[in-house]
Design a protein around this nucleic acid. Structure first.
Length: 488
RNA sequence: GCUCCCAUCGUCUAGAGGCCUAGGACACAUCCCUUUCACGGAUGCGACAGGGGUUCAAAUCCCCUUGGGAGUACCA
């Protein structure tokens, strides 16, 4: 194939999962690195589990991550439509071709008959393989079954295809990330490619779509390895060029089970709602299975794309731990443009009356509180004392820092200086506070203890934003009010 | 059950036979910086799953065991 074309084909039966996001990312990176095209296809074959809300979520999440597609349902392209449900009329044609070539046959088995076969297989500790009962039905037999009202499903004839294109029953291919992979096709049952209701099944529809969309490389999760053998055979039976495959390890929860709701967020949109930055999410997820050649882990999408090589991706599973994601998110928050950060922070500040502060003051507050946070939602609590008249004291803070003889002395001295404090002159205020600390330092009280008392009275806590910013943003009136309230 | 995949610090990983007394990042601990918490800096803790081979030499190659994951649908 001349052009490199990859795709991501999510099924809209849920919000975009981080695992899918990583697959999308690796496909995107591979396309970027190789000047290829990245296409998005929506696999909504199963109407019952599918919804438009999920389709929207998938679009929005992918866009938020910056994983822009070159072709897709919304932007179109030369190989559309890009939504499977709109492609239903093209699937029967190739089923007929397979039927004509003898690589497929009609199957009239009922669910009950199939169930019985499976039970027998498990009873004999054998792998279940369809009995091929319907492989050689005569026209008369078929007509009779049809007369009974039975509608056939179409099955793919594995052995026939395998024999036609390979020397033995072993089917092998070179995986882009896992290397040599093989499977004995005698162990693969003749699977249904078209249901009795006329709808195509997944393994068949993907092949037709990928073939028609000229997909050259299929990068996906390793849960698809066993499907790959079935799919290769369909490509071959259709006389189509078989694409290259690359199977990625799975993302596991810390308990090594599948990442699910009980482990916390699973959808990209949930991470965003919690206050994770999509840049950090991309960066983190890229590092699950891939390592930059220069060892520098903090990297933009562009930098990663330039360095990315699919064959360097690890073939093992990786555990999704929040520690590193949190650290990374914090790094991005620290480096982010303050205006952009402030805008992103606002949704997390909805419980406060933001009109209390000017935009400039808000930016100061965010600047002074961004350092220690790892996710945007940390801001909600960290910024609380900048709003409203009164504050809430954290447990024990009042008793230890204010209700003491020393605390009261510090507060009284501070109260006496409030009138002379330069609330609107950052530099001067800084000097005045230094002088204030020295006043007590000479009495043997550590600077940080002095500040703890003032901070406690003003914020209800012993740690938080820079005191200069606290004083400046709070302003003389609030400072005076809170200090006086703390003096017994 | 059957088939397939995987296996380096707690986690993500570097490592493609000698460069490995196994490197980095996160987490953790200690120290420094400091008006707090942090940030930043320094140091420390910490792994080649086990057993057999092959080889002058194995984390790297082969086999077995063990452990983990996936697939086994007229779901995708």
């Amino acid at each position: 194939m001349d052009e490199i074309r990859v795709r991501i084909a999510p099924s809209p039966s849920g919000n975009l999962h981080v695992g899918t996001a990583r697959t999308a990312l690796f496909n995107y990176l591979f396309a970027k690195k190789n000047n290829g095209k990245f296409v998005l296809r929506i696999e909504d074959t199963d109407a019952e589990r599918t919804s438009q809300a999920y389709v929207d979520n998938i679009f929005d999440s992918l866009k938020a991550l910056g994983l822009n597609w070159d072709e897709g349902p919304d932007v179109g392209g030369n190989y559309g439509p890009y939504t499977q449900s709109e492609r239903f009329d093209i699937y029967p044609k190739y089923v007929q071709e397979l039927l004509d070539k003898g690589f497929a046959y009609e199957c009239f088995c009922t669910p009950e008959e199939l169930e019985a076969e499976k039970e027998e297989a498990t009873a004999n500790k054998k792998a279940y393989v369809y009995s091929k009962k319907c492989e050689n039905l005569t026209e008369e037999e078929k007509a009779k079954l049809r007369a009974e009202g039975r509608k056939p499903a179409i099955r793919f004839n594995i052995a026939k295809a395998q024999k036609a294109f390979h020397d033995s029953s072993i089917l092998a291919f070179e995986d882009l990330v896992k290397g040599h992979l093989q499977q004995d096709t005698d162990l693969i049952g003749d699977f249904v490619i078209m249901k009795s209701n006329g709808a195509p099944t997944y393994n068949y529809a993907v092949v037709i779509d990928d073939m028609l969309m000229k997909i050259s490389h299929i990068i996906r999760g390793e849960d698809h390895i066993s499907n790959t053998f079935k799919q290769i055979l369909i490509y071959e039976a259709l006389g189509a060029e078989v694409p290259r495959f690359g199977h990625l390890g799975m993302i596991l929860a810390p308990d090594r089970s599948k990442l699910s709701k009980r482990h916390g967020a699973t959808a990209v949109s949930e991470f965003v709602e919690k206050g994770y930055l999509t840049e950090a999410l991309n960066n983190f997820v890229a590092l699950l299975g891939w390592a930059p050649s220069d060892g520098v882990e903090l990297k933009s999408l562009q930098e990663i794309a330039a360095d990315f090589r699919i064959n360097e991706v690890s073939s093992s599973n990786s555990v999704f731990e929040y520690d590193k994601l949190n650290w990374m998110n914090g790094q991005y928050i620290k480096k982010m443009d303050i205006k952009e950060l402030t805008a992103m922070a606002k949704p997390f500040l909805s419980k406060y009356d933001l009109t209390e502060l000017t935009e400039e003051q808000l930016e100061k507050v965010i600047t002074a509180t961004r350092e220690p946070i790892t996710i945007l939602s940390d801001l909600t609590n960290d910024v609380a004392y900048f709003f409203g008249k009164d504050i809430e004291f954290e447990e024990g803070v009042k008793e230890a820092n204010i209700d003491t003889e020393q605390g009261q002395a510090i507060l009284k001295e501070f109260a006496s200086r409030i009138d002379s404090l330069a609330f609107d002159d950052e530099e001067k205020l800084h000097e005045q506070m230094a002088e204030f600390r020295n006043f007590f330092k000479e009495q043997g009280i550590k600077p940080k203890v002095t500040m703890w008392t003032i901070r406690a009275a003003l914020t209800g806590r012993t740690h938080g934003a820079d005191m200069g910013v606290v004083l400046e943003v709070l302003g003389k009136d609030k400072v005076q009010y809170r200090i006086e309230k703390a003096i017994v």
